[in-house]
Design a protein around this nucleic acid. Structure first.
Lengths: 360, 360
DNA sequence: TTCCCGGATGGGAGCGCTCCCACCATCCGA
DNA sequence: TCGGATGGTGGGAGCGCTCCCATCCGGGAA
């Protein structure tokens, strides 16, 4: 395979053998269907696509023929003429597999799939891996291969995300994207309010020495939660308190808590920007022979069902990821149907779920 | 939308507006490309598809034009004539979202994507949800919409899985499918040997009262691990020992361990069929004021990196899920290239990773 | 009766691509 | 000198579908 255009998306296809004519008998075409039903191609087509102007008899004949022949419309042919790909991309702009390991991702896939259920849209997974791949991804998205895209914008967006808007491909973000100006539509939970609620809750318990384990500062969610937290402290008349940064993992949460307690041994309340980190905080606190919640109350973020059950009930901020992903997909479906229309961001209200880790 | 054919896959497309002619200028076609390069459509096509019989000048001209025009081949048109969809399905025959939450799934997606990286194949996610959906899924797979399928066969397969073989769509399973006769190709770790290794390892430490927390008996992996475990015990001259069943989760592992210890308080070694369950076992053992590994040695299965780090080093059987998924994808790619050829199962050797939970 | 109108139908064109085949050079061995 | 390989090229057909248009048929108004 020669020269020059290696990065051009899809141009160089890896030469897979011409697929020695799969031994199966050919699939029935619309023509076959029409013949079996005793109608014309056009009528069959109309019957299939929501039958306006089709007599009941013709409709019935076509329906029967579909069942008899096991007919499935050829998606490629349909796409070719309608210019609708019949699929949406889930873009994961993460160079490595880290995001994947995050159950957040699983929730997103579940939610999106849920919304796509009674659509004929298929979900195509697009992971942009190393650097130059982003242009390839962009090209793919812009090349009419999908009808829309959902971007899980976990990290500070690479430049290409902004470019996405100009390709004309309907796009919805899950999690507020960094680029605020361009008004890209997104779905998110009210991270700011979540942080604020955590602060108010801890303050309301009479805790006065509050610290937080924030998430990575290249994620909007982390930044917003931290801002809200600070705002909440201010409103409660409390000092800003110490901040340590974690990477949303349990281990990271424990490390951050360690540094937090080293700096401020008098701490009696901690807000961790994710449940996993909160778990790390709890572990560390206990390993230092201090009790949760008696000595240190802990609030998490995400309300992940699995974690709530581990003996310790974790007070946390609800983050209905699956629902949000479904909403994003819904939004996208709407955008595909009526292009041009300006989409409003959807922001889920933050809601505190009080459990044992702050009881008392 | 009338009558009769509601379950026919893709036949009734939800009527999304005819997409008011997306405001973008039309994408360049091969014709445009050829004109820009000063060659014929045929030559341009040849240049794009791995340029045999194309002069260097023509090739260069086409390459330049591709860059200039930002040309991307229209996948639908290509598919229509080549009968290659340019995508493979990852089938998750799970009615609910449970599998998704399993990091196993994330590993699979990562691995598959890795293998697909330098192919022009896209990954399409297919979750068969409720009952009648399975026929819909089957129809989709058989309808030429994808070139192949990877089935994550976590549970005892529904009938439709066997039918898959007869559709002529190349299929590879991850995890041995139940249906042994049909000789479906699969990739798996040597579960039997893994169980056996665990037994031998514990026996080798001088532990004589051994029990196991097995996985759900509707999964081949669980069954095979249990069989291997029993074989290992027999070879070591030990009695079969108690068995409790868990659901591969931490909580399930703890529950099972509780019943195990209730029945056999003298236990000094436990093999749990997954790391998560092993973690539950460790938790429970400790909560009963017994020590790991001094009082009870614990062996897990999966070697999940995240868990290895939680203070306790868990002895476990390696289970390279990502690699296995990549291998499955590789196998599938091969099968797509040369249909007809009989594929051999790929079985990764089991390997024991010894850590603190059995040290001593 | 004649005319028209609207619902139902069938045929043709064409979406963008790959493949087959015909064509034209050029170069070689006879 | 001429035949037949050979390498490069271009045009035509056609993949299976949807859309546009022309056609047809029946019933109510003129």
């Amino acid at each position: 395979m020669p020269s020059g255009c290696r990065n051009v998306c899809g141009v160089n296809q890896k030469t897979i053998q011409p697929a020695a004519a799969r031994a199966t008998r050919p699939l029935p075409t619309l023509e076959d269907l029409a013949r079996a039903a005793g109608v014309s191609r056009s009528t069959a087509s109309r019957a299939i696509n929501g039958g306006s102007r089709v007599s009941p008899e013709a409709q019935a004949a076509v329906d029967a023929a579909i069942l008899e022949l096991g007919y499935t419309p050829n998606r490629a042919a349909r796409t070719l003429v309608t210019r609708r790909a019949g699929s949406v991309a889930l873009v994961i702009p993460e160079p490595d597999a880290r995001v994947m390991m995050d159950p957040y991702f699983a929730a997103v896939v579940t939610g999106v799939n849920q919304a796509l259920r009674d659509t004929d849209l298929q979900l195509v997974l697009l992971m942009s891996r190393t650097g130059d791949d982003s242009s390839r991804t962009l090209r793919y998205l812009g090349g009419g291969h999908v009808d829309g895209a959902i971007v899980v914008s976990h990290h500070r967006s690479d430049d290409w995300v902004e470019t996405l808007g100009s390709t004309g491909v309907p796009t919805v973000f899950i999690g507020r994207p960094w680029d605020r100006k361009s008004e890209l539509p997104f779905v998110d939970v009210d991270n700011f309010e979540g942080g604020r609620l955590a602060a108010r809750h801890l303050a309301g318990l009479g805790r006065t020495h509050l610290g937080t384990v924030a998430g990575p500062s290249d994620m909007t969610a982390a930044v917003d939660r931290l801002e809200g937290w600070r705002q909440g402290l201010k409103e409660a008349g409390l000092p800003p308190g110490p901040v340590a940064y974690g990477d949303f993992t349990t281990a990271g949460g424990a490390d951050a808590a360690k540094s937090l307690l080293a700096r401020s041994p008098e701490l009696d309340g901690v807000f961790a920007a994710s449940d996993l980190m909160a778990l790390g905080v709890v572990d560390l606190v206990r390993s230092m022979k201090r009790r949760v919640p008696e000595d240190i109350a802990v609030v998490g973020f995400d309300n992940r069902a699995i974690l709530a059950a581990n003996g310790l009930g974790l007070t946390t901020v609800a983050h209905p990821m699956t629902d949000m992903a479904a909403a994003a997909a819904q939004l996208l479906i709407g955008a595909i149907g009526n292009p041009g229309q300006q989409l409003e961001p959807v922001i889920y209200p933050a809601e505190l779920v009080v459990r044992g880790s702050t009881a008392g």
